[in-house]
């Protein structure tokens, strides 16, 4: 496949992510401005950080003066999952995607970009850059629109848009999980653990970013121990 072809293939695969991000970052834009940030600040945060949970938690921290250490700790716990994704993706990167390219393209590793890239056997620079294009545009544009006209839209519409990101997660997990009982067991374990962290006393004091990391690492480790995968399983 030529460079242009694989770039185009990536852009095409990124369109649904971009649409999903448009709606999710729209709600981020609304929240940022309602918390007291300027429109340009909301946009700058989205353009430099490119993450949902981390930004949401981050703008909450920003409202309190001098909480730089707390900001660092919460960002690291919420985002530690990206390290696992980066390691996983590094295994699929082709020979040309290395050195400075990894430092450049690493910026764009989000849950959804990673999940879509993972479905490829091998990931090239042009494919990954194409894949990141629409999500980046969608994330920036959605934040801008939300920050500018969030208060104009009725609440029923903004509420409906907020489900988009989760629907996208469902669409990524369900198709492989229905084909593979081992994966289904891992998914079930992660959900059960997450419910426990949300509803049970004491456990529900753990911050949501950290609890997601704990649940995911525990479920995946249990899966890797009970249901190890052979090379040919992973495509």
């Amino acid at each position: 496949m030529s460079i242009l072809q694989s770039y185009k293939k990536g852009v095409k695969a990124g369109v649904p992510i971009g649409l999903g991000y448009l709606s999710v970052s729209f709600s981020f834009g609304i929240m940022a401005v309602s918390m007291g940030l300027h429109v340009w600040q909301a946009i700058l945060i989205s353009m430099t950080t490119l993450t949902s949970a981390g930004q949401l938690s981050g703008i909450g921290t920003m409202m309190i003066p001098g909480q730089y250490a707390s900001m660092l700790v919460s960002q690291l716990t919420i985002n530690v999952r990206y390290s696992f994704m980066s390691i996983s993706l590094s295994q699929k990167a082709d020979d040309a995607l290395r050195g400075v390219w990894r430092w450049l393209l690493g910026f764009f590793i989000t849950d959804e970009i990673f999940a879509v890239a993972s479905t490829e056997k091998s990931v090239s620079r042009s494919y990954f850059l194409g894949l990141a294009a629409m999500p980046y545009v969608g994330w920036t544009l959605g934040t801008t629109l939300g920050a500018l006209l969030g208060n104009v839209l009725p609440e029923s519409l903004t509420g409906a848009l907020c489900i988009a990101i989760y629907a996208m997660f469902v669409a990524i997990v369900v198709p492989p999980a229905k084909e593979d009982r081992r994966l289904l067991a891992v998914v079930g374990t992660a959900i059960a653990a997450s419910l426990a962290f949300y509803y049970l006393p004491y456990l529900n004091r753990v911050s949501s970013g950290l609890s997601v990391s704990i649940c995911a690492v525990a479920a995946a480790a249990l899966g890797a121990w009970l249901f190890p995968r052979k090379e040919e399983d992973d495509g």
Partner: peptide, 22 residues
């Protein structure tokens, strides 16, 4: 094999835990 399997399962586990019950 353990690490490879872990890395295969992790994204699905992350997305599942992020979705339910949030």
């Amino acid at each position: 094999t353990f690490i490879r399997s872990f890395l295969y399962y992790i994204p699905y586990a992350v997305l599942s835990a992020m979705t339910f019950p949030s």
